[in-house]
Design a protein around this nucleic acid. Structure first.
Ligand SMILES: Nc1nc2c(ncn2[C@H]2C[C@H](O)[C@@H](COP(=O)(O)OP(=O)(O)OP(=O)(O)O)O2)c(=O)[nH]1
Ligand SMILES: [Mg+2]
Ligand SMILES: [Mg+2]
Length: 366
DNA sequence: GCCGTTTTCGGCCCGACTGTTTTCAGTCG
């Protein structure tokens, strides 16, 4: 069984828990399955190999404890997890699709299912078109329209974008934003700044004087098909190529804390905020605070320093040990673009090449 | 369900936007 299949099972368990809500600690357990899923996705080695190796421990993997190690073993050995199957048997599996829709979370999935017996996206669409959703508590015409839009988006299933594609869009949008006179600085953040291979959406941090007029400027960009949300501090839009763009406006005095927040990852942010909290402080996108007093906010380096950490490069901000390394001043020195002299790839007779490693080496020497 | 320079039990990040909330719930970043 492949890692991504195991991750998919954990994701389903997490989502089923949110829908079922029959475990008193479902919020935390669901989050634990989520973290385990993300942790597994970041591992290059096959879990199956670790599970079968008597000298290795699955519990050495972050966010995997005794229980989840057992479930991984069970999945590797039998291809199934009893607990997963049990949870699946309680509700129709298609409810998991509903949870993928924007503006539809666990509470609404439960509401639609319990009140109207809605099990599938098609059934939800029919109910929305018939105006049956707006009669429900916490619902109205607008949220019903939003759901119909979300269903359209879901059917087009944009998926994730390659880093270079997202980078090109970010460059163009940044140029557009900078044309507005209230904009002082635009910094691409999120998974793009972390240099991930694929990008789910574009996150742009904008420093400027007049957030409201910047938001207005953003929503007038020509390539926009839908404005998902627009408030005083942030705007979310959908572009023609189905890419979502989240634009967050903040003041320059918060630049460092803001960039840390918007660069993430989520897991890294949660770990840092927890660390601040333990020290009696509070960390948010506005800064690091002791009560009302600002301890640090202007630069990333200052905020990390006050937290007792060396500046962590965006590429490794995943809460997979980098915080401990930064604390002990043993962060790795990452390879820089200028240091890359070229790209070399060779196939030898060990796989599908024609000559042996020895012959290749001899030819290279000659 | 995981995890530990305050804990092996008892916590688990913090804030913006939307809708109708009249004091907040749900969803999302
Ligand atoms: N503190 C905190 N920050 C969050 C949370 N969710 C997202 N963020 C921050 C960190 C993320 O890197 C950043 C952008 O959110 P995204 O959902 O776009 O995630 P990201 O860009 O990391 O990945 P993506 O490729 O878009 O799926 O916002 C959260 O629940 N808490
Ligand atoms: Mg993103
Ligand atoms: Mg985003």
């Amino acid at each position: 069984m492949e890692n991504r299949e195991i991750a998919a099972v954990f994701e389903e368990i997490s989502n089923l828990m949110k829908i079922l809500q029959d475990d008193p600690k479902w919020t935390f357990k669901s989050a634990a399955y989520d973290r385990a899923k993300r942790s597994i996705e970041g591992i290059s080695e096959r879990l199956e190999d670790i599970a079968r190796d008597p000298n290795r421990k699955l519990t050495d993997i972050p966010c995997i404890g005794e229980d989840l190690a057992g479930k991984i073993k069970e999945l590797v050995e039998t291809g199934k997890s009893k607990y997963h199957q049990e949870q699946l048997s309680k509700v129709p599996r298609s409810l998991l699709d509903l949870l993928q829709l924007q503006t539809v979370g666990p509470q609404k999935v439960r509401l639609f299912y319990q009140e109207l017996g809605i099990k599938t996206v098609d059934e939800l669409e029919a109910a929305a078109k018939a105006g049956r959703l707006q009669t429900l508590p916490k619902m109205d015409v607008k949220s019903e329209e939003n759901i119909l839009k979300a269903i359209e988006t879901f059917r087009r299933a944009a998926g994730r974008f390659r880093l270079d594609v997202a980078d090109a869009v970010a460059t163009e949008l940044s140029e557009y934003l900078r044309r507005h006179k209230a904009v002082e600085e635009v910094t691409p953040a999120g998974s793009l700044r972390r240099g991930r291979e694929t990008i789910g959406d574009l996150d742009l941090l904008v420093i400027g004087r007049d957030a409201a007029s910047i938001a207005e400027h953003m929503t007038r960009y020509a390539g926009i098909t839908q404005v998902l949300a627009k408030g005083e501090d942030k705007v979310s839009v959908k572009l023609e190529n189905q890419m979502q763009v989240d634009v967050r406006m903040l003041e320059r005095k918060s630049y460092g804390a803001a960039l840390m927040y918007f660069t993430g990852s989520k897991e890294h942010n949660v770990a840092l905020r927890d660390r601040a909290k333990r020290r009696g402080w509070k960390l948010s996108e506005y800064g690091l605070f002791h009560g009302e007093r600002v301890i640090a906010a202007k630069t990333e380096e200052e905020v990390y320093k006050k937290l007792g950490l060396d500046l962590i490069p965006p590429e490794i901000r995943e809460n997979l040990g980098e915080i401990e390394a930064a604390e002990e001043r043993r962060l790795p020195k990452l390879v820089e673009l200028e240091e890359i002299r070229g790209d070399l790839q060779m196939h030898t007779s060990a796989s599908d090449g024609h000559t042996s490693v020895e012959e290749m080496a001899a030819a290279a020497k000659a």
